[in-house]
């Protein structure tokens, strides 16, 4: 009974597991806090862009520069081929991530 390598309570598997669980919760907490701090302070870039949008009277984000109807999505043609149906896959891959503008979708509900 004397010379046993008694398992210290801290090395008990369940305790390690609970500790890891705590660490995970903590990290998730840190993630949320980081997000909210960044959201409050890190707006300089966004404001700068909003300023540019106002100044240049831009209407769209410059995400998909591959074709004109993907560059300015909100200004797209009303009747361009394959673009007037909600499930259109007119232009892969941009068209696979994007849908046609809401207005066009509304006009074409009867096609569904």
């Amino acid at each position: 009974m004397d010379n046993h390598k008694m398992i210290p309570d801290s090395a008990r598997k369940s305790n390690i597991c609970m500790a890891l669980f705590g660490v995970c919760l903590l990290l998730l907490g840190v993630m949320f806090i980081h997000a909210s701090i960044q959201r409050r302070t890190g707006n300089a870039g966004t404001e700068h862009m909003a300023g540019l949008v106002k100044n240049l009277e831009l209407t769209d984000l410059c995400l998909f520069t591959e074709a004109r109807y993907t560059r300015n999505l909100s200004q797209a043609d009303l009747h361009s081929a394959f673009q007037d149906h909600p499930s259109s896959l007119e232009h892969f891959p941009a068209g696979s991530v994007t849908g046609p503008p809401a207005g066009i979708r509304r006009i074409n509900v009867k096609l569904d």
Binding site: M1, H4, M6, I7, D9, R12
Partner: peptide
């Protein structure tokens, strides 16, 4: 209690000469 349980298990291990194999 965990302490009680491990102690008893070790006592049994000793009784049956399994000390080295615990």
């Amino acid at each position: 209690k965990h302490g009680f349980v491990t102690e008893r298990a070790h006592a049994l291990i000793d009784t049956f000469g399994l000390g080295a194999r615990a």
